[in-house]
Design a protein around this nucleic acid. Structure first.
Lengths: 198, 198
DNA sequence: GTCTATAATCCGATAGAC
DNA sequence: GTCTATCGGATTATAGAC
């Protein structure tokens, strides 16, 4: 039979079609409730195409995870590159995460909410990923330079990013009804007041 | 055949055996990777007993969820009953959660980490549960009494409990290597400094 | 490379003896 | 009430045509 996408100019590569469909289904139903048949239907491709591009169901989730965690790490990297103090770097990271939550809620939810270790075999905890370690290191560098009060590295990271991460979860769950960037200044000034050296 | 537990005095009721086994398996493998056969083996009871006590797999998770969320709500209720200011109530709640994390890490993880909406049909988001709403209300009452700075209710709750909740996740994931109660005073004094009226 | 149809497996739930 | 054995259905993955 004629390939499903051969007669019209394809807007997205098949790999992207599949990953987009998977992200949407994982967000709405969760990984285990989304069968590959669901993904196949949602992406409007065949089973053959799925298994031509990915070795199996877990590989789809793994590719998505790596892609999205990479995007998040890039947000952190940009925040570091564009600023030169712990305070401004933290604030820029939170700003980027808040904006990412509004523009790509499904991506943000997949990274922050999903229990990856339940479906990705031998994956390390997400807190040990580069993105989260770099966030911790921003604050810890501030401790070493005297800009931030003396604290254990993970305590400092929890103080700096805990409130913002909590608000992202509440926003994704529909508890907070206004866009997060509107709260950035308030949250950040309170947060920074708590941890800055004095 | 003779009932599996009939010849020795049973230490725990069968319902409890099943729920304990389920909690342990959910913690280590996740709900969807733990089959009913796994639970049956781990609890050392038969399939017949499982279905005599519960209507199905989801009902086990639902019972566990209700039990554990009830325990957590009781911790919050006690913290409210034993204290009379927003500050001391918040601190007591965080203290109880930190201790609960150390004494019952699997229970704490099931409540704070698991994606319940993926396996409990028609369950509201956990943030809207009584335990979490009461935590928010403790802080919001402080706002209304002038003890806490003026903020949106969920913002105030995120500021008050976000760092502590983040530390619990990091502790459960093995990133933080010392018992959380050791960090209570440091975390709470910084947190309270950030939100108290001045 | 893409497609449909099918195979192999696993899981939740039930039947029926005791 | 507890037990074992089994069924039906869903799911992942593959075979083989085009």
């Amino acid at each position: 039979m004629a390939p499903r996408n051969s007669n019209k100019k394809r807007t997205k590569p098949i790999r992207t079609q599949i990953l987009d469909a998977a992200l949407h289904l994982y967000s709405s139903k969760g990984y285990f409730n989304a069968s590959i048949h669901d993904i196949q239907r949602e992406a409007d491709v065949s089973m053959g195409s799925i298994y031509n591009h990915f070795s199996g169901k877990e590989a789809i989730a793994k590719a998505l995870y790596d892609d999205l965690l990479g995007e998040m790490e890039a947000l952190v990297d940009d925040s570091i590159a564009d600023h030169d103090t712990a305070a401004s770097r933290c604030r820029a990271t939170i700003k980027a995460l808040f904006e990412h939550t509004e523009s790509e809620p499904e991506k943000t939810g997949f990274i922050l909410n999903a229990r990856h270790r339940e479906f990705l075999t031998d994956e390390a905890p997400i807190c040990s990923s580069q993105a989260f370690v770099k966030m911790r290191d921003i604050v810890h560098a501030g401790v070493r330079s005297g800009e931030v009060r003396d604290m254990q590295p993970w305590t400092a990271a929890s103080m700096a990013f805990g409130p913002a991460l909590r608000m992202i979860v509440l926003r994704l769950d529909g508890m907070i009804e206004h866009p997060l960037p509107e709260s950035l200044d308030e949250v950040w000034s309170l947060t920074w007041d708590a941890i800055k050296a004095r």
